Simulated assay, not measured.
Amino acid sequence: MINEQELQQLVEEISLESFGRPFRHQARINRRLKTTGGRYLLASHQLEFNPLFLKEENLHYLPGIIKHELTHYHLHLLGLGYRHKDHDFKVLLKRVGGSRYAPNIGRGRRQQRKYLYQCQKCCLKYPRVRKINTRRYFCGRCGGQLRLVEHLN
């Protein structure tokens, strides 16, 4: 696991090597990040990184994530398009070889299905997170009436 000092040094090195510009702000570890590799804070110009990508088994993803966040950082400071949808962002990210999306390491959020509905005609099952109005919604296959089969707490 990389600590914050090593992370700061790595970000500064990648910034100089890939962008030819220094990184003059702070790189931190944010334990609250769950589904993303990192983020760039517009107001303070700090970079925050997900600690899951700082573990030994996921370290090979880290340079791509750092380059992604540094792309936001440098473009924003230069007054160019720093958002994901901007042309400047896409071109620079491709040029430096940063990752476009956060790699999936199996830690994404998954909602639990709480309700199970079943069609009374064709017996097709519909797992749902939220409760639905069975007088309003019908089976998509045959148009039959739905009924609540199971409610998990």
Rank of each mutant, 00 (worst) to 15 (best):
L93W: 01
H87Q: 07
L59I: 10
Y115T: 00
Y61Q: 02
M1G: 07
R109K: 12
Y137A: 01
E56K: 15
K67I: 09
G98Q: 08
K131L: 12
R24F: 06
R113I: 10
L77I: 06
R95I: 10
L78T: 10
G81T: 10
H151K: 14
H72T: 08
E17P: 11
S15D: 06
N3P: 15
E4L: 07
E6T: 09
G140M: 08
C123L: 15
P22L: 03
L148P: 14
L80Q: 14
L70M: 05
R32E: 07
G64W: 01
V129P: 00
R21E: 09
I14Q: 12
H68K: 00
R100Q: 15
Y117W: 03
C122T: 04
N153G: 09
G38P: 02
R24Q: 12
L47V: 10
E69V: 08
I105F: 01
G140F: 07
H45I: 01
T35A: 11
N104C: 13
E6N: 06
L59W: 08
G144H: 02
Q5R: 14
I2A: 05
L124T: 12
Y115F: 14
N133M: 04
G64V: 04
G143A: 08
H60G: 04
L148R: 03
G144N: 02
K121W: 11
V91S: 11
L52F: 13
Y117Q: 00
F53L: 11
E13D: 07
V96F: 01
H60D: 10
P63A: 00
K55V: 15
N58V: 07
S18L: 07
D86W: 06
R32V: 08
F19P: 08
